[in-house]
């Protein structure tokens, strides 16, 4: 089974509107990440661009529609499409979410939450096994940004992820923005979440922006909107994690209100600066 092997550098989520800018000169990014579902057409400019980028950069294929947290069976057709995509581009990493998005043949196009119980744990483990077996590669599972909890949950999210990783051998994608968003939404300390997280299994980190609103009682409710620069407390969490585990592949995700390339590149440079410091402290 292929292990996830992204370069321990900063990457960015690829947006087609940046393609021409990226080609003008070698860019200081270690890899690009794409949403798998945007490359499931048969041909045309999306594949031409991805093939061209692949010549010069690392690649992370990030699925947003497999519905690993579904209590129903995985969509075999979708899994087959993911295999075709991974076979074609041979990405350094494939990742998906601890969430569900399809139910009874309806695709809901959002990363929906699940309660953490022995029953859901068994189902997620079964699905991750099936994905890794089909793709012939290790996958990374990402911690979700959540807005509510389930009365039936009996396992902490960090313990749930640790157990999935232990039973399946999958790696974890630690989204530090999601940590901050979810911890705030559940009135928890994000540092405490990081303390409990199985950091040894982390193969990639996600960084992104969020927006702020409030619930009906006036408590802060953060939304994982990917439409702003990374916020200060998220940078702080990122540094905290790098301090503990050393340099790891890190991605700037900016999916909505996408900025011009120089802005995104500068955001990546900020992350690379912190990553370089982590490299130096490992070397010291």
């Amino acid at each position: 089974m292929l292990s996830s092997a992204l370069p321990r550098r900063v990457g960015v989520g690829f947006k087609p509107e940046h393609f021409a800018d990226i080609l003008t000169e070698p860019q200081p990014v270690g890899f690009f990440e794409v949403h798998a579902e945007n490359y499931m057409g048969a041909g045309g400019p999306p594949h031409a661009q991805l093939g061209r980028l692949r010549e010069d950069y690392g690649l992370s294929v990030h699925g947003v529609g497999l519905s690993i947290g579904s209590m129903q069976q995985l969509d075999r057709h979708h899994l087959a499409r993911l295999k075709t995509l991974c076979d074609r581009y041979q990405p350094e990493s494939f990742s998906e979410h601890l969430a569900w998005s399809s139910h009874d043949s309806v695709f809901l196009n959002d990363l929906l939450p699940l309660p953490y119980t022995e029953e859901t744990l068994a189902r997620v483990v079964e699905h991750v096994d099936q994905v890794q077996m089909t793709l012939g590669r290790q996958m990374l599972l990402e911690n979700p940004a959540t807005y509510l909890l389930f009365a039936d949950s009996t396992i902490e999210e960090t313990a749930f992820l640790a157990e999935v990783a232990r039973r399946t051998g999958c790696g974890l994608l630690l989204d530090v923005n999601n940590v901050f968003v979810a911890a705030t939404n559940h009135n928890l300390d994000p540092g405490d979440y990081i303390d409990r997280f199985p950091l040894a299994a982390v193969r990639e980190i996600h960084l992104s922006g969020h927006s702020e609103t409030a619930d009906e009682l006036g408590a802060p409710l953060l939304i994982d909107s990917h439409d702003t620069p990374v916020k200060d407390p998220v940078w702080a969490l990122y540094q905290e994690v790098l301090g503990r585990i050393g340099p790891v592949a890190s991605l700037i995700e900016w999916d909505n209100d996408v900025p011009a390339w120089p802005v995104l590149r500068a955001e990546a440079a900020s992350a690379q600066h912190l990553l370089d410091a982590a490299h130096r402290s490992v070397a010291a």
């Binding site: 196009n109 509510l148 939404n185 559940h186 619930d215 009906e216 009682l217 939304i223």
Partner: peptide, 25 residues
């Protein structure tokens, strides 16, 4: 079956998912 740290009927929190689904589609 839903809950929140401060609210046993988290309507607005569920509404975030409702809005995400409709807005993204």
């Amino acid at each position: 079956g839903l809950t929140a740290w401060n609210n046993k009927t988290p309507e607005r929190r569920y509404g975030v998912y409702r809005n995400n689904v409709m807005a993204s589609l």
